[in-house]
Design a protein around this nucleic acid. Structure first.
Lengths: 195, 195
DNA sequence: TGGAGAAGTTGAGACTGTCTCGATATATTT
DNA sequence: AAATATATCGAGACAGTCTCAACTTCTCCA
């Protein structure tokens, strides 16, 4: 039975691959429509497979959600790398956090999975998180060297706070999210040099 | 049947009051032990009442949780008022946020209810939230007048970000929470005056 | 090409949790 | 102590998650 990760010994059987794809597609649709609270049974039904098949591919609800999230994360890592080209390091970082906020807002409710994947090596998402952190690290390091952020800020801090802000703006409003992000970024900014 | 709020016409019947108290006590215990994921049925069983009785007092899981949270919130508002006596306005605010973080950490998982109660006037918690916001407002206003926080910071911003940080530290670690709170507070701090 | 065996699918049903409601019991009032 | 308002009871409807043994379909190799 599929483990969720690409099989190690042999490639997945053709029908299995097809079903997996359909399940993910339906899950994405349902998620976009109802947020976290969709029924797995319904996903299976809409994908035209039996209930048990879904569980074969994704043992838990979380596994399904995580598979869904993986692609997004990789995209975010990509954006981070592009933003290294931004002439202003701090602006680059700002733009990236804004992007991350948008991501997290789109995938409302999944922030928790994300935060835990960062720590948990066993998670399907861990690799994707590492990629995102690496991208963030590059941005933060560049801004630090330019003296634009406090020396003790890490990519992990940025990631955590942006995810937290996204969570908060889920609870209230997107506008509030923008506001909070602004304050947060100011907290990261280096105090003006004294000399 | 009890609505959750103290009855308006007559006082609650003696047995009802007793049961309500027991239910809350059991819920608090279960919550402390298992977090959000305890079964309402079990609460009823442990309180020695039938399932339906619980639902009579608290129509939804959320109602129960909110009732539980109310006391805490009032306590937090009280602490806020005391901290108005702190000689340094910013320190007072800092201490208050730390207190709030501890609260939110204790009541892990309830941040969402809190955030929504702020906005939602129909919520049982709304009044308690207002009290907290009022206390926060006083602290923020004092710090603002002393030129210690940015002029555009509101109590609501502080509340939202602290709750968000609490959420984040739930997902990873308490240590991380302290760190994030420090950055956050720096984001609220007024930039040093220029003249 | 065909058939053995691995890989995947199926769907009924066990289980758990939420919530409803008519019958029933208890407190309070007069 | 009867009348009435107020609560409680608990079986069961319903929905969701997840399991498993029987079955089907694919793949590979002779």
């Amino acid at each position: 039975m599929g483990t969720g990760t690409p099989a190690q010994r042999r490639p997945m059987r053709a029908d299995a691959r097809r079903n997996r794809k359909r399940l993910l597609a339906e899950a994405a649709a349902a998620f976009a429509e109802h947020g976290m609270d969709f029924s797995l049974e319904e996903i299976a039904r809409r994908a035209g497979v039996a209930n048990g098949t879904l569980y074969g591919h994704f043992p838990t609800r979380r596994a399904l959600l995580e598979a869904l999230l993986g692609d997004r994360m990789r995209a975010l890592a990509g954006t981070g790398e592009e933003l290294l080209a931004d002439p202003s390091p701090f602006d680059g970082l700002t733009a990236w956090t804004r992007e991350a906020l948008a991501h997290a807002t789109l995938y409302r409710g999944l922030g928790a999975a994300l935060m835990q994947a960062v720590e948990n090596e066993a998670s399907e998402l861990h690799a994707a998180c590492q990629a995102v952190l690496a991208a963030g690290d590059a941005l933060v390091a560049r801004a630090r060297e330019a003296g634009e952020v406090r020396p003790d800020v890490t990519a992990r801090d940025v990631f955590a706070l942006v995810t937290a802000v996204a969570w908060a703006s889920e609870q209230s409003s997107e506008l509030q999210g923008e506001r909070l992000l602004a304050f947060t970024l100011d907290g990261f900014r280096a105090p003006p040099a004294l000399p």
